[in-house]
Write a protein that binds this DNA or RNA. Structure first.
Lengths: 405, 405
DNA sequence: GCGATCTTGTTCGTTTAACGAACTAATTCC
DNA sequence: GGAATTAGTTCGTTAAACGAACAAGATCGC
C-alpha cells in the first residue's frame, strides 16, 4: 500500500508493460538459469508467444544468450537461456582509511584483477591516481569496450543521486563531488555509495541464488560501525541520505567517549578500535582512537589470534564486544524486524568466540519468539563484501524493477 | 532500485497502464481538487483525450464527481473535478486497555458519530458487542449501503495480511483471529492493524494536503511506547509483522525493570505509566505498572496539570520523560534519517514542557546538521490519531499505487 | 518404419489502450 | 461578429498483450 508521490511520479505509457515484463523475465532467467522459454511462460503465466518476443529483445541487446539444448522425457528439446555476465565488466573501488582497493570484475562478482595503493586524502589526487590505474587496468585486460561502469564505496555519508560525499570523517571530506570528476576522467558511468549500504546492496543482488530475503540489515564492524537497511528488496537511504548510522546508538550514558562527540555509542563499544582499546586496557576515547588509527601496533586480527591461543584478556575483550553488539542488534531486531542480520568486518574472524554473547543478548531482548530466532549471519572479510558492494552498484540497475506509479 | 521478487511478482498485462494512470490521476485530483481535466493532462504530461477516458472511468465508478465551472481569464471555462469522500463511510475501532472506541466517519476523516464502552477482554464477547453496536450505528445513520469497511487498531502485534493478532499483552491475546470473526458478523470487509502503524498510515493518507513527506516515523507514547516507520510512502511491517517496536530500546542497563522482562527500556522510562511512577516516587517495575493500570488514582494528564500549576516534582518527572524520549528519538533519527518524527499520545499535552529536553538530546546525538534539524512534531490526542489510523486502513487501499513488478 | 502424441517455439490475426491530430464547445478580446 | 484562446471529445493510428493455429523436434507404440 504505497502512496503515489504526486510531485514525482512515473506514469505508464504503452511501452510500460513490455518494460515491466521484460525485467521480470530477465530476473527469472537470472534466478533459474538455465531455463527454457516454455518454462518462463509457465512461471509468468503468460503465453509462449510473448515470451518469444521478450526473449528476442533481450537476445538482441545481449542481456541473455542461448545455451545448449536440454534433455526432455518427451517432446521437442528446449533451448536453454542464460544471463550474460562473463564479458560484462565492472571497476569496483573501495576507499578505506589506510588503503584504496581497485578490482576489475564481471557482473557475477568473479574477480579478474585486484590491486591497492595507499589512500590519498586529497580528493583530486585520489581521482587522478584512480583514473590512471583504471585506464591501465582496462588496457592490460583488453577490456576497454566491455566495462559498463565504475562502482565506488566510501566510509561516510553519500548522496547517491548526485554523487556527492556529504561527510566522510575518516577521509576528512565534506561536500566533495566525486562522481562527475571520475566520470569525466574515465568516460565511464560512476556510482558512489556509502559502504554499509553497498554491502547490503551486494547481498540483494549478488547473494547465493534464491537466498534473497527482502528484509534484512547488513551491519559492518570495522573502524566504524554502520548498517545498510533493506526493506522490501530496496536499500533505505533516508530523507537526507544518511540512514543506517546505527553506530551511534547510545548504549550507556556512562560509556566511553565516541568520535562523534557523544558518549557510550555502540561504535565506541564495538568498533575494531574500541575492541583494541579494551584489550590494551585503555578507556576508549577520540584521542586513543586517533593513536590506534596510525596502526603500527596490535590490530584486531592480532587480538583474535591471541584469544584463540588462550590469551584471557583478548578473549574477554572480544566477548565484551559481542555482548554490546548483541545489545545493538536487539534494537534493530525489535525496531525493524528483519528476516536476518548479516554481519561484516574483521570481527567475523572471531565468530565462534563472540556468537554466544551476541545471541544471549538478542534473545534476552527480543519481544517475540520469532524475533528471538532472527538469524545473525557472519560474512567473512575474505569475501571482500565492500568490493562486491561496489560491483552491485553497477550491476543492480540492469536488473532492478522499473519504477512505475 | 528495487529487486523483483521472483517468487511473488505481479506481471503487467495490457490493462496495467490504465490501472496505473487511473490511480495517478485519482491521487492528483485528491491532492489538487478542484482541478480540471486540462490541468490533469498538463500535470501528467499526457494527452487530454486519454484524460477524458480515465475520468469517465472514475466518474462511472463514483470515485470522483464533477463540480462547478471555474472562472478562466480566457477561453472555455473548465468543469472542476473532486474526489467523492462525504458519502463513503467507514467504521473505525480503537481497542485500548480501558475502553474501546467506535467511530462512524467518512473517507476524509470527518467524524459522524463516536461512542465507547468498557473493553471486554474475551475476543468473542468483544466481537459480539462490536457487531451489535456497528449494526445499530449504521441503521441509525441510514448508512447500511454506504459503509465500505471496518478499520480496527489494537495495542499489539498484528499480521495485517491474515487479520490475526499475534500478541497483545495489554489485552492478554495471543494468536487470535479477529478479521474473519468480525467480517462474518457484519458482512463488511475488515482491516486490522497495530496502533502505531495505523497512526503512521493516517499521516500518509489523511494528513493535511501536500504535507505528505514519504519518510517519517510516528512514535506513540501511551501505556506502551511504539512506532510506525514509513519508508518511501509505505509503512514498514517487517518480516514477522512486528516492526516498529522501538519501545524496548535499552537506554541504560541499570534502568527500571520493564514489562517485557528486560531492564532500562525506552518504554520503562517514558510511557505514561513510567512518568506516573516517577512522579509518585516509585521505581518503575511490572508490579508498579499493573497497580497503575487499574487507573483509579492520578493519571498523566493530572501530572501535566500539576506541572503547569507549579508542582516542581511533576515538572521534573515530565522533563525526565522528555530527556529519555529524546535519547530514543536520536536513535531513530540516526538509524533511519526520517524527514520528520511525529509524536502522539497524552504526553503531547505537555509539549512545551518536554520539547526543550527532547530537542537537547536529539541535537546532541545527531550526526549531521540536517539530522539535528529533524522536526519533531506533536500530534494532540484530541485529534484522535488512532481512530484516524483505523479510517486510513479502509481508505488507503482505494488510493494506493497498484503493485507492479 | 510410420503414425500418434507430446512439448517447444514461432507466427499471425484480434483486442486493448495509449497516442496524437482534428474537431467541437465555450469564452474573451478587439 | 470574427479572431484568438482554452477546455473537452472523437477518432484514426500504433504498440503490445493475448490467444489460437502452426511448425519443429522429440518419444512411444505397433
Amino acid at each position: 500500500m504505497r502512496k503515489i508521490d504526486t510531485r514525482d511520479f512515473r506514469r505508464a505509457t504503452r511501452a510500460t508493460p513490455r518494460e515491466v515484463n521484460r525485467q521480470i523475465l530477465l530476473n527469472l532467467v537470472r534466478e533459474h538459469q538455465p531455463i527454457s522459454r516454455a518454462d518462463l511462460a509457465r512461471r509468468m503465466r503468460i503465453g509462449r508467444g510473448i515470451v518469444t518476443t521478450l526473449v528476442n529483445d533481450l537476445l538482441e541487446e545481449g542481456s541473455v544468450y542461448e545455451g545448449a539444448l536440454a534433455e526432455a522425457p518427451r517432446g521437442r528439446r528446449p533451448k536453454m537461456l542464460h544471463v550474460r555476465t562473463r564479458d560484462r565488466l565492472v571497476i569496483a573501488i573501495d576507499v578505506r582509511f589506510s588503503r584504496t582497493y581497485l578490482l576489475l570484475s564481471d557482473f557475477s562478482g568473479t574477480q579478474i584483477a585486484l590491486e591497492s595503493f595507499r589512500t590519498l586524502f586529497d580528493p583530486d589526487a585520489l581521482l587522478n591516481e584512480l583514473a590512471t590505474r583504471i585506464r591501465s587496468l582496462l588496457r592490460t585486460h583488453g577490456a576497454e569496450g566491455n566495462c559498463e561502469g565504475i562502482g565506488m564505496v566510501l566510509p561516510g555519508m553519500v548522496d547517491r543521486a548526485s554523487g556527492r560525499v556529504l561527510n566522510a570523517p575518516q577521509l576528512g571530506w565534506r561536500d566533495v563531488q566525486i562522481r562527475s570528476g571520475l566520470a569525466e576522467r574515465t568516460g565511464l558511468p560512476v556510482h558512489v555509495e556509502n559502504a554499509p549500504a553497498a554491502c547490503a546492496l551486494a547481498h540483494i543482488w549478488l547473494g547465493p541464488r534464491g537466498s534473497g530475503s527482502r528484509d534484512f540489515v547488513y551491519v559492518t564492524v570495522s573502524d566504524g560501525v554502520g548498517a545498510g537497511v533493506v526493506v522490501n528488496g530496496e536499500v533505505v537511504r533516508g530523507h537526507g541520505h544518511t540512514a543506517g548510522e546505527f553506530g551511534h546508538i547510545p548504549l550507556r550514558s556512562d560509556g566511553p567517549r565516541c568520535l562523534c562527540g557523544s558518549a557510550g555509542c555502540l561504535e565506541a563499544h564495538t568498533s575494531n578500535l574500541a575492541t583494541l582499546a579494551r584489550y590494551l586496557g585503555h578507556e576508549f576515547s577520540p584521542a586513543v582512537a586517533r593513536e590506534l588509527l596510525k596502526g603500527d601496533g596490535v590490530t584486531v586480527e592480532d587480538v583474535i589470534l591471541r584469544a584463540r591461543r588462550g590469551d584471557e584478556r583478548a578473549h574477554a575483550a572480544l566477548e565484551d564486544t559481542g555482548r554490546y553488539l548483541g545489545l545493538g542488534l536487539s534494537i534493530i531486531i525489535n525496531g525493524l524486524n528483519p528476516a536476518q542480520i548479516f554481519l561484516g568486518g574483521e570481527i567475523t574472524g572471531a565468530w565462534d568466540l563472540i556468537e554466544p554473547a551476541i545471541r544471549a543478548e538478542t534473545q534476552r531482548r527480543a519481544l517475540t519468539r520469532e524475533a528471538a530466532a532472527t538469524p545473525v549471519v557472519p560474512e567473512p572479510a575474505g569475501s571482500l563484501p565492500r568490493l562486491r558492494g561496489a560491483i552491485a552498484l553497477v550491476a543492480a540497475p540492469v536488473f532492478a524493477a522499473p519504477q512505475v506509479g
